[in-house]
Design a protein around this nucleic acid. Sequence first.
RNA 1: GGUCCCAUCGUCCAGUGGUCCAGGACACAGCCCUUUCAAGGCUGCGACACGGGUUCGAACCCCGUUGGGACCGCCA
Length: 439
Amino acid sequence: MVDTVRVRFAPSPTGALHIGGGHTALFNWLWARHTGGKFILRIEDTDRERSTQEYEETIMSGMRWLGLDWDEGPDTGGPYAPYRQSERLSLYRETADRLLREGKAYREGEAVIFKVPQGVSLAFDDVVYGQIQMLSDTLKDIVMIKSDGMPTYNYAAVVDDHAMEISHVIRGEDHISNTPKQLALYDALGWERPVFAHLPMILGKDKKKLSKRHGATSVYEYRDMGYMPDSVFNFLALLGWSPGDDLEIFSREEAAQMFDLSRVIKKPSVFDMDKLNHINQEHLKKLPPCERLALVEPFWREMGLPIDSHPREYLEASLTLLAGRGQTAREAAAYSDYFLDFGPVKERYESIEADGAQLEVLRRFNSELLALPEWNAEAMETFSREWSAANGVKMKDLAMPLRLCLTGMKVSPGVFEVAEHLGVREVRRRLEHYGVLQA
RNA sequence: GGUCCCAUCGUCCAGUGGUCCAGGACACAGCCCUUUCAAGGCUGCGACACGGGUUCGAACCCCGUUGGGACCGCCA
């Protein structure tokens, strides 16, 4: 009997790894890791027209990106190899011949077709959906081997799940109606059935099955938008499942430990970008500086910023200063460009807006600020508060123009912290450029 | 059309007959903090689709209605 859990993710290499596919893979992975079982990757490349080696590789790297490692697969091999259906043709052939000999299947053209017995109740107990039953009379005969010699999905999946000793078939709910067909096959072959667990679908905002129309659907698009794999993992795990308490931000390991198939719900869930953003921000905040830098760096590079002319410590500190600003790595990169270069600042603002009298006040203030014996945020703030009180000028009217000159933005971390981090020389350079220092 | 599935705040989840005039999170609004924006803290808005049962008692069980979804390929 089934003593060890063996689950599989069985994508067809006809496209990149989808959010839906990632969700299915994730739940299989969680169950395997939770139970100490095996997670198997099987490539279902029986569609000669659409399957490609490139897609197979993208799917695998997509899974790696999400942190879903597999124990057996086409690249790693394993005791049930090969793991690519196109390499298991003889198995399908032999099994089909057997059914042919037993009179349970027939030929039509080059194809082999399974004759569905009539009047049979095909029922199974789904781990998440419960008892599901269908009468065999509503089923048409099932094509097992196509005219091109390749097996069909419903047939190959049964043969392989049996041969690979899969204990739990965990897949999307759209496969519920396929299950009775596969049940008929298991019965005809005299094979023991695996346990079935169907997962609720992921829907778009319009409550329709998630598709290209809904925007980004491949997991890679999320990476390119600046989402962390940990966040996408966390977010996907929360679709159709929850640990039961109010814990929402967790790691892969924590999820694997808490996960249980019996806690998966039936209701389809809507993909909510706002929630993903929030989860990403939470994970971003937890990251140590060096890892955050690694995440943001590609986006800075993409923006053409001079990364290599700054020490790593400086770059890390720049991001630490951001403290929760930005929900994605891409946003964090955009919010911090002024730390790396003066260029973007100048592009945003040609000059500050101030009339003659205001300008004179700013010139005096900035000049005195630059003359401070100690160049740190605390000293600058103390000085500024005293100066503003003494001169009857609001802090705001001193800080905002300074912020504008240094960052080119109306929003930023505390402006004195920005100034400290930029360094007195750079601050002087920027203030001089805008003519807000005394001659 | 046939078959199957689903139904708690706008969204994601909690809730498995009494402790629920329903709890948390996101989003939204307001307040506090404050040199700005975030972050953080506090408050608010907001749902058991409807109708019948069963029961002393129903968000939870049963039936129906309505509304959604999936599948009906020699695609997977």
